[in-house]
């Protein structure tokens, strides 16, 4: 039997008020001038064994399409400033591509990092957060998210990824914390590497079950996966989305719009049950300028997870 939700409304609101107080409204209207991602790329002799192999390429604003074509949408959705890219050559002719994306603010950089890392790889001690997968390393620190891609999968290349990554991270001044909305996700039972921070439909469509919250049109969303057969309760895997709107009226408007949907039912407690576009069951609750949405798993698991949002604060 799941925990009753209605009695915890005050605690729920308190938790999210704390998050709201720390949240910066995304994206900031006047971002600071670019510090220049290019200056972070190591020059000759900066990383033992690895030397620049070509000139630095730089793209800013919508010109990002010229560099990564359809991949640009994701970065632009978060708020993109500039990318600087360069190739490096190392032992035995091994090659690594380095790309440093300067985003509008640290939360935007964290969001791109969270979506692009996905579930893959292992944590690495580089920058504020880093993930090393088979042949590539992704790093987040402050307003920057960087990818380092080995063109082959060898131990020497993996060492090179970390070495170049550390050289880049070492040049970044500042070490912003994770977005406050992410910090508001319940800690207990959170699956490793499952946290995502989203600012629009492109990112939402690229995270597990994210299409369920695309219709909510929240400007800011934090998500994580909980439970599953080999983890703590809930027994069934449920994904929690915390949605933040500019104000309570906007959140209420979204909630009412979704409640009017064909597959949505409002219960006596004011909670909304619905079916996502991908036919995943969901449950949502609205407090202040936030909405919490639990998707997937069974009804008890969804209710329990929403209750945990309350109980942990």
């Amino acid at each position: 039997m799941g925990r009753p939700v209605t009695g915890a409304a005050a605690a729920w609101a308190t938790a999210l008020l704390l998050a709201a107080a720390a949240c910066s409204a995304p994206p900031p209207p006047s971002p600071p001038p670019a510090a220049g991602a290019a200056r972070l790329l190591p020059g000759a002799g900066a990383v033992p064994g690895w030397e620049p192999a070509d000139e630095i390429q730089r793209f800013s604003g919508d010109d990002l399409f010229l560099f990564i074509d359809g991949g640009a949408d994701l970065f632009l959705e978060y708020g993109f400033r500039e990318v600087a890219a360069r190739a490096y050559r190392g032992p035995g002719g091994a090659a690594i591509n380095a790309e440093i994306y300067e985003m509008a603010d640290p939360a935007a950089a964290f969001g791109v990092y969270s979506v692009r890392c996905g579930d893959a790889g292992d944590d690495a001690a580089v920058g504020s957060a880093a993930r090393l997968a088979d042949y590539y390393l992704t790093v987040w620190q402050d307003r920057y998210v960087a990818t380092f891609t080995g063109l082959s999968e060898t131990p020497a290349v993996q060492d090179g990824l970390v070495a170049i990554g550390r050289a880049v991270a070492g040049g970044i001044v500042g070490r912003a914390p994770t977005p406050a909305l992410v910090a508001a996700l319940p800690a207990v039972g959170k699956r490793p590497h499952s946290v995502r921070y989203v600012r629009g439909p492109v990112a939402a469509a690229n995270i597990p079950l994210g299409e369920a919250v695309v219709p909510w049109q929240a400007p800011e969303t934090a998500a994580a996966r909980y439970g599953g057969t080999d983890g703590p309760a809930p027994v069934t895997a449920v994904t929690l989305f915390l949605l933040a709107y500019p104000d309570a009226a906007a959140a209420e408007g979204a909630f009412r719009r979704m409640a009017a949907g064909p597959d949505a039912v409002m219960d006596a407690t004011g909670s909304l049950t619905f079916m996502s576009p991908q036919k995943q069951p969901g449950r949502a609750e609205h407090r202040g300028r936030h909405v919490a949405v639990a998707v997937g798993g069974d009804a008890a698991g969804r209710e329990e997870l929403l209750g945990r949002v309350n109980s942990e604060r």
């Binding site: 359809g70 991949g71 692009r116």
Partner: peptide, 11 residues
């Protein structure tokens, strides 16, 4: 199969 179309991603 992730991070397309530019990568790097899961191969």
């Amino acid at each position: 199969i992730t991070n397309g179309p530019f990568g790097p991603g899961e191969l």
